[in-house]
Write a protein that binds this DNA or RNA. Structure first.
Lengths: 345, 345
DNA sequence: TGAACAGTTGGAAGCGCTTCCATGAATATA
DNA sequence: TATATTCATGGAAGCGCTTCCAACTGTTCA
C-alpha cells in the first residue's frame, strides 16, 4: 500500500535503523549511506506516517489554541501571529474556537488527553482554577494570552497604562471635563482601564467623579458590546448639560465606542466637535469609524505566545513568566486632534 | 507513568481485548464486565492515547482547513460553522491559515502526508491542478469552499444570481442609469458578478455599456480591496456628469464599497442621495457603514463543508457534488430605500 | 602482535492501541 | 446424550516508527 521504512531499507540494502537515522539527521551515518537512502526516499516518494512517529517518539509536534470567536478581529490577528510562528517551528495548530466557557473546558480536557498535544494556548478567558493542578501534574505547557495566572506563562496588555495614555491624550487636547464609558467592573480589564483613567485625571489635578463614569452591562461580554456602549452614551448625553458638561469621553473598548457613536449621532451630538472620543483595542472597525484608540499589538502577541510555549517545552522548570505589552495611541478623527496621524492604513 | 489499557486490564481482571471493546462500545461484552471495566477506567482516570489509537485504527479523527486570512470576517464566520460541526462529529480541526498561494501548497502537501488527516477543506482559492491527481490517488477527501473544481465536492455562492438580485433592487428603486465597480475579470467571481449585472439590465431593457463598468486592479486580491474601490469610485465620479449621469452603482464587494464610500465622501458625492450603492458579501463592516449588500450564508457554508467531508469519508465513490448558496439582499441605507429593513444586528 | 577504541550498522524491542482468531462456557437442537 | 450455535473473552499480531544495544570493521597505540 504505502511506503514504509521497511520498503526503503530493502530497496537501499540497509537496515531500518539506518533509514530512520538518515531521516532524522542522526550524525552517525556515513555520507555515502545517507546519500543512497535519501535517493531511495525520493524515488519512492516516501512520506513518514505522522502518528507512528508521534507514538514512537512521544512528541506530537502539535499545539492547540483555545480561543473565543467573539474577539473577532483580535482573533484573526493574533491567530496569524500564532500560525506564522507555528509554521516556522514546524508545529501543527489545532484550533478550538469557542463561544462560551463550557466549550472552553471541554477543549481544555481534550488538550489534556495524554499525548494529544505538546502545548496549549488559552486566550482571553480566565482559566478555571480546577485545571491548574491538571496541567501541572502532567506538566503540559500552557500559555495564557490576554489573560493571566500566576502559575503559568502569561501575555497581556497593560490596560492601566493604556488607559492613562488615552486619558492623557484628551487632557493634552485641552479637555478638563472627561467622562468615561466602561464595562462591568467584575472584569479585570474594566477595573484596570478605569484605574488608568483615574490616574491620568489625578496627574492633571482633576477630581475623579463617580457620576462621570457610565457603565452598562446589558448584552454579552460583560458590557463590552455595541448596545451597552450605545446605552451608556445615551445616558451620558442625557445628563450632559450646563457648565458641568463633559467635552470628552474615554470609552473602554472600540465596540462600545461604535455603539456610542450611533447613540451620539442619533441624539444630534457631533463627534468630535461636541464630544471627543478615545477608545481602546483598535479593532478593524476603528479605522473605518476614525476612532482614536489604543492599539494592542495583536500579531506580536500571537508570535510571542508560541515562542513562550516553545521555551517552556525546552525548559519545563523555569519560573512562569509574564510579558505585558504597552498599547500605542493611534490618533484619528474622533478625538478632534488637528492632525490625524494615521500611519497604519 | 500514565495509565494504559494493560493497567486497566490487570486492575479489572480481564484481558486487554475486552478493555478495548468496552472503550469502543463493541457489542459483544457482557453488561457486567463492561460496568466493571468502566468503573476502573473512572477510578484510574484513564485517558486513551490519541496517537496510539490513530496508528492502530488508521483513522485520525482530524481534518485540516486551508484558509486565507485575508477573507477576514468570512474567515471567522465560516470557521465557526466548521468548528461547531467538527465538535459535534468529534473531529479535531487543524487550522492552516495562509497569506499566499505558496503557503497554501505547502499545507496541501502536509495534509496529503500519509495518515495525517482524514480530510481537507480548501477555501477561497483555486486548487492548483497538480494536486488533483494526488488527492485522487490516495483518495483523501477534499472539499472546496467558496471555490470550485469539477472533480471534488464544492460549495460556492451563486455570484451571478446575487449580482442580478442586487442590480434588480436598484432598478426597482427607479434607477435607470446604473454603473458597476468591479475587480479583475481574471477572477471567476468578478466575471459572474458582472454577468449578473448585465442580465438584470437586459431584463429591464437597458443596455449594457462598457464605459459604465469601472475596474481597478491596484492593490492585493485582484482588485477586491479598499484602495481599488476608492480608485474606481474616483474614476466614476470624474466621468459622471451631464444627463448621462449614473445615479446608482453596483459594487462587486463590500471592501471595495468601503473604499468607494471614502472616495465619494472626499469628492462631495453624497450616498445614497447623489449615488445609491449596493455591494456584495455582507462583511462585518457593511453593517456599520450601512451598506445595502448581498449576504453570503457563511456559517451555513462552514457547516455544510464539514458535512460534505463527512459524507465523502463514508462513501468515497459517489460523484462529486456541487452546492450553491443563493445570497440574500440585506437592505440598509446606502441604496436609499425608504425603509431600511435591517433584521440582523 | 594484540588490545582499545571510534565509526557504522542491523535489527529487536517497545510506543499503546485495535482487531482477529482461538478458546471456552452456556445454551439450543436433534 | 451428542452436537451445533451463540456469546464472551484473552491475547497475539501488527500499525510504522524511534531508540537502544550488540556487533562488525578499521585504526591507533603500546
Amino acid at each position: 500500500m504505502s511506503v514504509t521504512i521497511y520498503d526503503l531499507a530493502r530497496e537501499a540494502g540497509v537496515g531500518i535503523g539506518t533509514v530512520s537515522r538518515c531521516l532524522n539527521n542522526h550524525p552517525s551515518v556515513s555520507a555515502e549511506t545517507r546519500a543512497k537512502v535519501l535517493d531511495v526516499v525520493k524515488r519512492l516518494s516516501y512520506q513518514p506516517h505522522a502518528y507512528a512517529q508521534r507514538l514512537a517518539s512521544k512528541k506530537t509536534n502539535t499545539i492547540s489554541a483555545i480561543i473565543p470567536f467573539f474577539t473577532n478581529y483580535f482573533f484573526i490577528q493574533v491567530l496569524q501571529g500564532v500560525q506564522d510562528k507555528a509554521a516556522e517551528l514546524g508545529f501543527d495548530l489545532i484550533l478550538y474556537g469557542v463561544n462560551n466557557p463550557s466549550q472552553a473546558e471541554y477543549y481544555l480536557r481534550r488538550s489534556l488527553q495524554r499525548g494529544h498535544v505538546d502545548g496549549v494556548m488559552f486566550f482571553s478567558m480566565s482559566l478555571p482554577e480546577s485545571y491548574v493542578p491538571k496541567f501541572q501534574q502532567i506538566r503540559l505547557p500552557l500559555v495564557l494570552v490576554d489573560a493571566y495566572h500566576p502559575e503559568f506563562d502569561s501575555i497581556s496588555v497593560r490596560n492601566l497604562e493604556g488607559a492613562t495614555m488615552a486619558t492623557r491624550h484628551l487632557l493634552k487636547l485641552g479637555h478638563t471635563n472627561i467622562a468615561m464609558i466602561n464595562a462591568s467592573l467584575s472584569t479585570q480589564p474594566a477595573r484596570d482601564r478605569m484605574e488608568g483613567y483615574r490616574i491620568a485625571l489625578a496627574e492633571a489635578g482633576l477630581p475623579f467623579r463617580n457620576d462621570r463614569v457610565f457603565i452598562s452591562e446589558i448584552g454579552k461580554q460583560d458590557g463590552f458590546n455595541r448596545e451597552a456602549g450605545r446605552a451608556s452614551m445615551e445616558d451620558l448625553i442625557g445628563k450632559n448639560s450646563g457648565k458641568d458638561r463633559a467635552t470628552a469621553v474615554f470609552i473602554a473598548s472600540d465596540v462600545q465606542a461604535m455603539g456610542a457613536l450611533e447613540g451620539a449621532a442619533e441624539l444630534g451630538v457631533r463627534v468630535p466637535d461636541d464630544l471627543a472620543i478615545v477608545s481602546f483595542d483598535d479593532i478593524e472597525l476603528a479605522q473605518h469609524a476614525q476612532l482614536t484608540t489604543m492599539r494592542q499589538p495583536m500579531y506580536e502577541m500571537g508570535v510571542l505566545a508560541l515562542e513562550k510555549l516553545f521555551a517552556r517545552m525546552k525548559s519545563p522548570d523555569s519560573a512562569p513568566s509574564l510579558t505585558t505589552f504597552l498599547p500605542s495611541l493611534i490618533v484619528r478623527r474622533s478625538c478632534g486632534a488637528s492632525v490625524p496621524s494615521e500611519q497604519l492604513v
